[in-house]
Nucleic acid binder design. Structure first.
Lengths: 258, 258
DNA sequence: GGTAGTATTACGTATTTATGTATTACGTAT
DNA sequence: ATACGTAATACATAAATACGTAATACTACC
């Protein structure tokens, strides 16, 4: 009789999947990391990660610095830019952003969503002496910002609630709303109104006035927002809100949403 | 006696490599394509490409439209933005670009190099009524533009010559220089001078005044340039050149090149 | 100076997978 | 109606590779 071989189905994971896990860990970290750290974070076999990191590095998908830390490589910038160039929403949004920044002389941001994070995708600085903390590429939990809430406002009640349940994070700032149910209700209300305003949450005395940019299917594919000192915003709120909303509508028109 | 089996060493290519080939074809095309077309272009087994395209699509590295054409997916934007966010040259360059655009009220571009192409990496439109043809992400052969030539100007004579030999393309515009030797000499001269000017090549009556941004190792890692109507440029050339060069120097200072 | 954790590399192998081959379907030119 | 190139999918298999294991070296803590 044959001795039954250990029937633990060794679960191999494809190189492509492992590669993406590595890229994801680095994007999450937002800084270079060692192959060892990456492997530990993923919970993947160390030897596997070492060899795939080596492979990706030789293909310029990753770079290695003098301390043997790896970071995303130039090839990813190439693909990212190619993607952007084709995406006409961003093209139109960027044009309108530049226009609005010059007109209002305030900082304008275009934000998109990536899973549970709001991503600053483009920015125009209208006011030289005013610097915001969030730069291009920065990622913020959806429950922290006006734009974040707008970006899930089109989802049906349950889906929206699940998003906040899954991805809400508590912020250093005590004002942040954290109750998922309340968040999803606010989110839907703001999306329907086509406007979300947030004061002084992500930063000291900074206001953000955001409007949704809707795609052809009615979903929120991006937001456009003014970021400016609280005092300025509150003294002239109607003016800024109407300008931002006008810009959002122009973009929607340009991409054929209406 | 055993019949010798056909000893053709079947040369398998890894899934990661095939994935990158697919992404490269799509970036080159600059538009969506079918799996069949991609396979033909690469010269890869059709079944392989179909299955890998399927795999990448399910992982959001690619998207598929209603005609079954595939295009780069949102995940690539994520990685591209993360890469950019970490790259302090671009951060500084972008800041200075915004500043200069507001000051000169002209269009400013930040360009980088990807192999034999010059890539428009960031842009600020200072003048609303003037629209350039080259948008963010657009790729132009290095021999067509002032910025392109600057971006290889730091290479040693032979390397520089090889770049032009390998990557020069003839343009629809008859003015384009195509002799590699002449190009490499011009390139080195311009890089040393810290200035390259090109009139009316890539577009009708449009001038480009570009300055190199040098990294800590002295190589040209990016360029900053003003793009404006020929008439404006020639009537005030000294002013524009000195402003662009000042900006380039400021960026180099900010990233610690000098 | 021994034990434990971190960091990296090397190697054999079970297991996945990239490929070749075949099949179906569609348009269109012969 | 037949032949041909394009387009897409299915399946078996030879061959690459993701994984387990082990070896080496370096810190740090007792």
């Amino acid at each position: 009789m044959m001795i039954e071989k250990n029937i633990k189905t060794r679960n191999r994971i494809s190189g492509i999947e492992r590669s993406l896990q590595i890229l994801d860990v680095l994007t999450d970290f937002g800084r270079p990391a060692s192959a060892y750290d990456i492997a530990k974070t993923i919970g993947a076999p160390i030897s596997t990660i070492y060899s795939i990191v080596e492979d990706l590095t030789s293909r310029e998908m990753l770079t290695r610095d003098s301390n043997n830390l790896v970071w995303l490589g130039p090839r990813l910038l190439r693909y990212g830019l190619a993607y952007e160039a084709q995406m006409d929403v961003l093209l139109e949004a960027r044009k309108e952003m530049d226009h609005l920044a010059a007109y209002l002389k305030e900082t304008i941001q275009i934000c998109t969503r990536d899973e549970g994070k709001m991503v600053v995708t483009a920015m125009a600085t209208g006011n030289e002496h005013f610097h915001v903390a969030s730069h291009i590429g920065s990622r913020t939990p959806i429950n922290w910002t006006a734009s974040g809430r707008l970006l899930v406002g089109h989802m049906d009640d349950n889906e929206c609630l699940e998003m906040f349940k899954k991805y809400s994070e508590t912020s250093p700032n005590t004002d942040t709303i954290i109750d998922p149910l309340q968040l999803s209700k606010t989110s839907k209300k703001e999306f329907t109104a086509g406007l979300a305003i947030q004061v002084s949450l992500s930063e000291f005395s900074v206001s953000c006035i955001a409007a949704p940019i809707r795609g052809r299917d009615g979903s929120c594919i991006a937001t456009i927002s003014v970021v400016l000192p609280e005092l300025k915003a509150s003294s002239n709120l109607d003016y800024f809100t109407s300008e931002v909303q006008k810009s959002a509508n122009k973009i929607e028109l340009a991409i054929g949403s209406y």
